[in-house]
Amino acid sequence: TYTYKLTDEEASRRAEDEWRNRGYDVRVRNNNGTWEVEVR
């Protein structure tokens, strides 16, 4: 499981799409203004 911490929502969406396209399960959540993109 990888977790990315990003401050930019758009960057988190791009990361989400990119990993999803590669067949990974992705979750995005906002934690106090930081976007966490979790990849498994």
Rank of each mutant, 00 (worst) to 15 (best):
T7E: 15
E18R: 08
R20W: 03
D17N: 13
T7Y: 15
A11P: 02
G33H: 03
R14L: 11
N31A: 08
N31Q: 08
E16G: 09
G23S: 01
E36A: 03
Y2T: 14
T3S: 07
R22H: 07
N21D: 10
L6G: 09
S12P: 01
R40Q: 08
R14M: 10
Y4T: 05
E9R: 05
T3W: 10
N30G: 06
E9H: 06
T34D: 07
A15I: 15
N32F: 06
E16S: 10
D25G: 04
S12K: 05
K5W: 14
D8A: 03
V28L: 05
S12R: 04
R29Q: 09
G33P: 02
T7R: 11
N30M: 11
T1V: 13
V39G: 00
A11W: 05
N21P: 00
N30V: 12
R27Q: 13
E10S: 09
K5Q: 15
Y24K: 03
R20P: 01
N21T: 10
T1H: 13
R40V: 10
W19V: 01
V26M: 00
D8T: 13
N21L: 12
R40M: 10
R20H: 05
A15F: 14
V39T: 01
V26G: 00
N30W: 12
Y4F: 14
R29C: 08
R29Y: 12
W35T: 02
D8V: 03
Y24L: 04
T1E: 11
E9W: 09
G33N: 05
T3M: 10
L6N: 06
E36T: 08
V37G: 00
T1Q: 09
E38Y: 06
E36Q: 05
A15E: 07
A15G: 02
N31E: 08
W35C: 03
V37S: 00
R29D: 04
N30F: 15
N31F: 10
V28W: 02
W35M: 02
W35N: 00
E36F: 13
R22E: 05
V26H: 01
E36D: 04
N31Y: 10
R13M: 08
T7P: 15
R13N: 06
Y24P: 02
T1Y: 15
E10Y: 09
L6V: 15
N31S: 08
D25R: 07
R14A: 11
R40P: 04
T34K: 07
T3C: 15
Y2E: 11
T1I: 14
G33K: 02
D17Y: 12
Y4K: 04
T3N: 06
E38L: 09
S12H: 03
S12M: 14
Y4R: 00
G33S: 03
E36V: 11
D17M: 14
S12E: 03
N31L: 12
G33V: 01
W19R: 01
T34Q: 12
N32W: 03
N31H: 10
E16Q: 10
R13T: 05
V26W: 00
T1W: 15
V26S: 01
N31W: 06
R22K: 12
E18G: 05
T7K: 13
A11G: 06
E10D: 11
Y4I: 14
E10L: 09
Y2L: 14
Y24I: 04
Y4S: 04
Y4A: 04
R27C: 13
N30R: 09
T3I: 15
Y2Q: 12
R40Y: 12
Y4H: 06
V37W: 00
T7V: 12
E9S: 05
V28S: 04
L6M: 15
K5D: 13
E36R: 01
V39Q: 00
E36W: 13
R29N: 08
L6T: 15
R22G: 05
D25Q: 11
E10R: 07
D17A: 14
V28T: 05
N21W: 04
N30P: 06
V28H: 02
R20G: 04
R14K: 12
E16A: 15
N21V: 07
L6W: 09
D25K: 07
Y4P: 11
V37E: 01
E16V: 14
Y24R: 03
R29M: 08
W35V: 02
G33L: 02
D8H: 03
Y24W: 06
T3Y: 12
R27Y: 10
T34G: 06
Y2M: 13
G23C: 09
L6K: 03
T34M: 12
E18H: 13
V37A: 02
E18F: 15
W19N: 02
N21Y: 05
D8C: 08
K5A: 12
N32A: 08
W19I: 03
W19H: 03
W19Q: 01
R27P: 02
D17K: 14
R13F: 05
V39F: 03
R29H: 11
Y4M: 10
Y2I: 15
S12W: 06
E10Q: 11
Y24M: 04
D17L: 14
A11Q: 09
E18D: 10
G23N: 02
T34R: 06
S12C: 15
R13L: 08
E18L: 14
L6Q: 07
E16K: 05
D17S: 13
N30L: 12
E38A: 05
Y2S: 09
Y2R: 14
T1M: 10
V39C: 14
N21I: 08
D17R: 14
G33R: 00
R20E: 03
Y2F: 14
R22S: 05
R27G: 04
R13D: 04
D17Q: 14
D17G: 08
N21G: 10
E36K: 00
T1D: 13
R14S: 08
T34E: 10
T1F: 14
D8I: 03
E38T: 13
V37I: 13
V39I: 12
T1P: 09
V28I: 11
E9V: 06
T3R: 07
T34V: 15
G33M: 03
L6E: 09
E18A: 11
R27I: 15
N30I: 11
D25A: 08
A15V: 15
A11M: 09
G33W: 01
E36S: 04
R14I: 12
V28F: 03
D8S: 14
N32T: 03
Y4W: 08
T34L: 12
N21R: 13
E9Y: 11
A15K: 10
A11S: 12
E38P: 00
Y4L: 10
T7C: 15
W35R: 01
D17H: 12
R20D: 02
A11K: 05
K5L: 15
N31R: 10
T1S: 14
E18S: 09
R20F: 04
D8F: 04
V39H: 01
R13C: 05
A15M: 15
E9D: 04
V37Q: 01
D8N: 11
R29S: 12
E10K: 09
G33E: 04
T34C: 07
E9I: 07
R27N: 11
N30H: 12
R20A: 05
S12L: 10
G23R: 00
E16W: 08
E9M: 06
N32S: 06
E10H: 07
W35F: 07
E36P: 00
W19A: 04
W35K: 01
E38G: 01
R22P: 02
R22A: 10
R40E: 06
V26P: 03
G23Y: 02
A15L: 15
W19G: 01
R40H: 09
K5P: 11
Y4Q: 08
W19T: 02
E36C: 13
N30Q: 12
E10W: 08
A11D: 08
T3G: 05
N32E: 10
T3E: 07
A11R: 04
K5E: 15
R13S: 05
E10N: 08
N31T: 10
N31V: 14
R13P: 02
D17E: 14
R40F: 11
V26N: 00
A15R: 04
L6S: 11
E9P: 06
V26Q: 01
N30S: 10
A11Y: 05
Y24E: 02
V37P: 00
R40T: 12
D8L: 03
W19P: 00
R29G: 04
R14D: 06
R14P: 02
R20L: 08
R20V: 06
R29E: 05
G23M: 01
R29L: 10
G23W: 01
D8R: 00
E18Y: 15
K5S: 14
W19D: 02
V39A: 02
D17W: 12
V37H: 04
T1R: 11
